[in-house]
Design a protein around this nucleic acid. Structure first.
Lengths: 333, 333
DNA sequence: TTGAAAGCGCTACCAT
DNA sequence: ATGGTAGCGCTTTCAA
């Protein structure tokens, strides 16, 4: 930058302003500066700039599991929106570990990212990362998972509605003994479970504890959970699974035990991941508009990053939507 | 930092050194500094530090498609290795677009990342990002895809071997008319195609052009490619697909047309993505050790980032490994 | 073992 | 429309 100024016989200031299309710099000078800049192949130093402006144009995207394509899609939505605005996205994969999440968030705060989008792996009662965030005054948006006790802008579905929708669908199919493979102890897991209970209760169907087993994330665990479920007597004839990966594992287990899906047991998941249609039995699911969640979150965050004063907390709920495929394709009994 | 110094009646320098365990600062002083640091909840400013040290502890990870779980797994491997060393990983998703890749790489160079790991979407003849990189002197490691004309450290499989292995397997099964759904015009696509040809030629089997169709990435395209393939007369009885997502689509198409897999047509993919076992027909595939690729690349890169002088170019080839499942489970004819 | 001075590359602020 | 001064928060170099 100094070189350009020297070469052109103007001050460094003029150059600095010209490069940023600052208020009133004559067209002519700007042209000259830009020309020389290209000649020298000069690129402004983001770090030095950040140091004085206090803006890094970095955004932290904190996700529990990149391998789960729901989150990969969210990440796609976020970057698609944020890149054109000049932000770079730093993805932190917490592997569903609250402690990892805490350190990553602390790190990113030190790095002075301009904002956060977080699908948190914190269990209830652990709000430390959010206290750090609030203290740092860096704006952030929660996605997918709400954290009790944390008042923050959020984008996601109402998980209770999702659970009720899925369970209600199974009931409508004529299933009499509906089980649930539940997720982890975060708002999504808890909410979907609550929706499941609610749907049953509303129709005056009993909620049986042996029909609720834990699945967590991943494929093999859905498999294990289903094996356990099928030990119950009588066996369930419908299962609402916490998410699609779990459901995929569940289908595998059911088939291995010689059951037919959906004839003997109907199965529905959640998330509508891209390969659900290609599974052993194409999977009915509840779509959560994953990439829209990412885009919307990016939008809300960028408003908050641009704004001088803190913007009000906003909660955006995206309506869940049934996607029916073979795994629940059954005539009403 | 100044505050700590003032409070303790020492110089800012002493504090700076104490915090970095610099050479010889008395134990006592260090303790005092650390204590006060915790009290004030002080965190060093990475940006200011970067400005003078010229190290950002950021690594750019440039991938063509996060939705493809092969790359998601690679990303997992990379971050798992790099986080503990104090690096943050900035993931850039180029969506298989050479132009996007170019701008992202340029951006990240400006941001002074310390190194790059790249699975490039550049087609042959486009080496611009790499010329930028070479000029910037930032170390980088290529993964998965080699770029002709770019001499760089690389981690991946020998795609020709992979193609030969997969095709050879189909031949061993007794398939007589083996087709290939080929990938994009990058080293992986080209190499696998070459391996396919080689395997056939070696066994003196004919290479028929109508048995080679283009699949690209994604699910529906594998589906489309298979539909096209099945118009051939006679129909192929074995297909080697560029990767698992393509193969998943291909299976769907074959089944829809009433063919049995593997009885009428055997199918094999590549990449061993995590859901391959859960597909309509569990998919035989060639494993590429995706997360090991990520880890190894991270290792090579960190050596190069720590080293003062440029380290020699290294090429690490991970041997491909057959994973046999139902989609190619057939008695030898 | 500790500290003072200088400067990294840029921009904010205020003058001209 | 242009420029001078100061300073962001840290580290490096060299002196005490």
């Amino acid at each position: 930058m100094k070189d350009i100024a020297r070469d052109l016989g103007v001050s460094q200031m003029t150059v600095s302003k010209a490069l940023r299309n600052h208020s009133d710099i004559s067209e002519k000078t700007r042209e000259r500066v830009l020309k020389r800049m290209r000649e020298l192949n000069y690129q402004p130093d983001w770090i030095a700039r950040s140091m004085v402006t206090k803006r890094t144009y970095l955004v932290g995207l904190v996700l529990p599991d990149l391998m789960h394509s729901f989150f990969a899609e969210v990440a796609g939505g976020v970057t698609r929106k944020l890149q054109p605005l000049g932000y770079q996205v730093v993805i932190s994969n917490t592997e569903e570990n609250a402690e990892t999440e805490r350190t990553h968030v602390a790190n990113l705060i030190n790095r002075k990212v301009d904002g956060f989008i977080i699908a948190s792996a914190q269990r209830s009662g652990q709000e430390e990362p959010f206290r750090l965030l609030d203290k740092s005054e860096i704006p952030y948006v929660l996605i997918d998972r709400l954290i009790p006790g944390v008042e923050a802008t959020y984008v996601g579905v109402k998980d209770e509605d999702l659970g009720e929708l899925a369970t209600g669908h199974l009931i409508g199919l004529g299933c009499k003994r509906i089980a649930h493979i539940r997720g982890p102890n975060v708002s999504t897991g808890v909410g979907r479970l609550r929706g499941y209970r609610k749907a049953l209760t509303k129709r005056k169907m009993p909620v049986r504890n042996e029909y609720i087993v834990s699945g967590q994330h991943g494929d093999s665990t859905g498999y294990d959970a289903m094996l356990q479920l099928l030990k119950a007597n009588p066996r369930p004839d419908g299962v609402f699974c916490y998410n699609d990966p779990v459901a995929a594992g569940a289908i595998k287990a059911a088939l291995e035990l010689g059951m037919r899906v959906p004839e003997d047991i109907a199965i529905i998941g959640a998330g509508n991941v891209h390969y659900s249609d290609l599974l052993r039995v194409p999977l009915s699911t509840v779509d959560q508009s994953s990439s829209i969640i990412g885009e919307k979150a990016a939008e809300l965050l960028s408003e908050r990053m641009e704004s001088k004063k803190p913007l009000p907390v906003e909660r955006v709920f995206i309506p869940p939507r049934l996607v029916l495929r073979e795994s629940s394709n059954r005539r009403t009994a």
